[in-house]
Design a protein around this nucleic acid. Structure first.
Lengths: 349, 349
DNA sequence: TTGAAAGCGGTACCAC
DNA sequence: GTGGTACCGCTTTCAA
């Protein structure tokens, strides 16, 4: 028996009632008090015929698909994947399915997906931002249409688009990382930042923590990565550690697991023991170092909280499309492991 | 302006034609020869009103959604993610969108997703199999309904379900791995297999290669992992290498990057240099060791080919639902890196 | 307590 | 060349 051929009409015929009755009974619509007997006849008929409701027609009528669209630039790092995982889980719990699109960094592809999503009348979209060349017309259209949309992750404030945003607080995250290193007595702290970071948040956070000690953010100990790959970060890490001992940082804060792995390698090459000679804190928990002997202390992006908030926020907008758009900032969490010196400190006691 | 409020009727009014004409013109239906002028008026009106077609209603009418459903057990390893990536890309190219479901190893969740997919009238489904407790009723129903479905990845032949399957040839992959080690002069080869492998394919492949040298598959050099995690594999790797030198394997074939990383670590602990003292080939390219000093020689799962075939196969079934179901086996590829001795060999020359 | 009927927004057959 | 109209399958109003 082919799926999808049994309709409410068939059920109605079999149960000896009208199609409207079937809809009422199966839809369990409130305010309807059908006779017990009628209800059972409908349920039985539906079961026997293996009736599967057709959400396409229901969607057409109700103007609601119980489906959302999700656009990711790529599945190339564990943080994005973890957020995706949570988002998928949360939407399912809330009764939604998710339509996925990978934009692969192409604005055109992103646009195509958004068009496809509109056409399929998704109830809302979640977008993970990507680096843009100022091409945001399609996003502007989304916004102007007041289409329920949430942007998850790092974005440029300057885009000036009135969306709901959800992200970990990167400024606070860097403040926490530096703060922690300062507590371990470090004063010479180096950084590996992404080149394109939203509005200098990372720098500001680092600076704020340094300022409590009257320390400046030293440009000579800052490096920038484009993509954040291991290969790209390795020479930068080497250059941070390669100078005269007195002129080198004693601690490094870097963004992501690949740069962290690069620092570990560079330290090993230079003969620096971690955390004894060099402390390391990563912003973002890619769990890349999980197979190495050193587990890296990390400021977590709290993917679970971010994903959950994003889902809640989108559902809020779906339910009240005129509600105000919010900027939701999730507090990061410091996860102590073996690269910052906490263990040693305990041993000293 | 809200999205979705402009319909063909609005376009028709604006263009001064009938709704049927709009549908014909915009749908670019063959066999219709509308006047140039009419066509332009329709296009212009559609553009000015920002008309976005409603695929929900079109789907209802045409009984086709241009959407497929994809079920994965989890996004927990790079091989699955890469296949997913390719599948998404290929379906997009073919004009489909993909509805994603993570079953998280729960049969009930898988079933719920399949139901949601039916309800949304996806044109077909791609399922990545998971370990099952014999609960395959929902799959059997899928099959009996002749619903276009493709199963991607390792499965038990014994399930006896008439689906289309696409997978890398695991038997051949292991044959290739062992073959390669034999060519490097190894006769004592150890294995780390997954406990649940489809029908002993891996063993058969390994045996076939060993047999060419008159060698047996030695049970004492075989270990089994449940989940294939690093933590689980490490003690097993140690136990493989820990015996008397003469009784230990000189080469290991393992399934996946985490076990490979475990072998690397165990070798390091035992003081074995790779590939000089111990050769290693991994079946499956998790690129986990990419940050370590040793790049592991791997028999690739050829995710690209697998994903592409899966997509082609599903589209074939969508277009001809009665077509026969196929078992598609993709030939694996040996990727030479630094853990098998190929480099050394070159140096000798 | 139940059902007739008018949509939802397209598609496609058929008549003009 | 063009348009009327009967669907696709379900929801919902309103009347019986």
């Amino acid at each position: 028996m082919k799926i999808g051929v049994v309709t409410q009409k068939d059920v109605a015929r079999k149960a000896g009632v009208s199609p409207a009755t079937v809809s009422h009974v199966l839809g369990n619509r409130p305010g309807f008090a059908y006779a017990r007997n009628t209800r059972f006849r409908v349920f039985d008929a539906a079961r026997e015929l293996r009736y599967v409701p057709n959400l396409v027609s229901a969607s057409l009528r109700k103007q609601r698909t119980w489906t959302i669209g999700l656009i990711l630039p790529a599945l190339d790092n564990a943080i994005v994947i973890r957020k995706f995982d949570i988002i998928e889980r949360e939407f399912r719990r809330a009764g939604y399915h998710v339509l996925m699109g990978l934009s692969r960094g192409e604005v055109a592809t992103e646009r195509t997906y958004l068009d496809g999503f509109y056409s399929r009348r998704v109830d809302g979209v979640v977008i993970f931002p990507m680096l843009r060349n100022g091409e945001i017309e399609h996003l502007r259209r989304l916004m102007e249409a007041q289409f329920p949309s949430v942007i998850v992750g790092e974005h440029e404030d300057s885009e000036g688009l009135d969306f709901s945003y959800v992200d970990v607080n990167r400024e606070q995250g860097h403040e926490m990382a530096v703060q922690h290193l300062i507590e371990h007595g470090h004063h010479r702290i180096g950084f590996i930042f992404p080149r394109f970071e939203g509005g200098g948040r990372r720098r500001r956070g680092a600076e704020r923590a340094l300022r409590t000690q009257g320390l400046p953010l030293e440009e000579r100990w800052i490096r920038h990565v484009e993509k954040g790959s291991f290969a790209e970060a390795l020479p930068l890490a080497r250059s941070l550690l390669g100078g005269a001992i007195e002129a080198s940082p004693t601690a490094i804060v870097c963004s992501g697991g690949s740069p962290a792995a690069a620092v570990l390698r560079a330290a090993q090459e230079t003969g620096l023991a971690i955390p004894k000679d060099l402390a390391l804190v990563s912003f973002g928990d890619d769990d890349l170092a999980v197979h190495g002997p050193t587990l890296v202390t990390t400021v977590s992006h709290c993917e679970e909280a971010v994903g959950t908030k994003a889902c809640e926020e989108l559902i809020r907008l779906i339910e009240q499309p005129d509600a105000e758009r919010r900027h939701i900032s999730v507090e990061p969490k410091l996860i102590l492991r073996n690269s910052c010196g906490c263990e040693e400190r305990q041993n000293e006691k």
